[in-house]
């Protein structure tokens, strides 16, 4: 078997130590070694964004990184964004706004939107659309994901205004 390399990495605040082959993708490491299967793989070449995780807070495609490259870094996956009992604001917004159908692309949107809203807490509808335009979804037509971004921003800001106030208007 191929040579193994030690990897120490923090995932969702939990320290993990493992030995992996150099070629083991970060996505496979998370999914199959740590069994955090919320991170999904949709294209294996960094285009669809389903595998997006946060590396020290910044979105990265985990299918384009080796696990060994993540050594010493802090990773956040969708599992780290909230739980069924205590959903995070983006997860809550997607649920409220029907922002998902099959749910396969959703984890990548959640990590992407989470990072985006940290830097852009008050996006317009147009900016929200732009923010998610690096992730592919085949089910929703994106409209309700845009709505979810706006709703998540509201939840984070702690305002109770209806998401409808900032809904997209047709061009």
């Amino acid at each position: 078997m191929s040579e193994l390399f030690p990897v120490s990495v923090s995932v969702n605040g939990v320290a993990h130590g493992a030995s992996v082959p150099a070629r083991r993708l970060l996505s496979d490491f998370l999914r199959h070694d740590l069994r955090l299967t919320g991170t999904h793989v949709g294209c294996e070449h960094g285009v669809c964004g389903a595998c997006t995780v946060l590396l020290d807070g910044a979105p990265v495609r985990s299918c384009l990184m080796f696990a060994v490259q993540a050594a010493g870094h802090e990773i956040t996956t969708v599992e780290g964004c909230g739980t069924i009992e205590a959903m995070g604001p983006v997860q809550q917004a997607l649920t409220e706004s029907h922002g998902l159908q099959c749910g396969f692309c959703t984890p990548g949107f959640i990590t992407t939107i989470t990072a985006y809203l940290r830097e852009n807490p008050e996006p317009t509808a147009e900016e929200a659309r732009e923010a998610i335009s690096g992730n592919l979804c085949r089910c929703t037509g994106y409209q309700n994901i845009v709505k979810s971004v706006l709703r998540a921003a509201e939840i984070i800001r702690g305002t109770d205004a209806e998401a409808g106030d900032r809904q997209e208007a047709p061009a």
Binding site: R31, L36, T37, G38, T39, H40, V41, T77, V78, E79, C81, G82, T83, I84, M87, Q91, L94, T95, L100, G103, F104, T106, P107, I110
Partner: peptide
Amino acid sequence: DPRLVTGNGRYLDD
């Protein structure tokens, strides 16, 4: 949705 948005979906490769 609560299951799917929190990484608790179970798709084939999971």
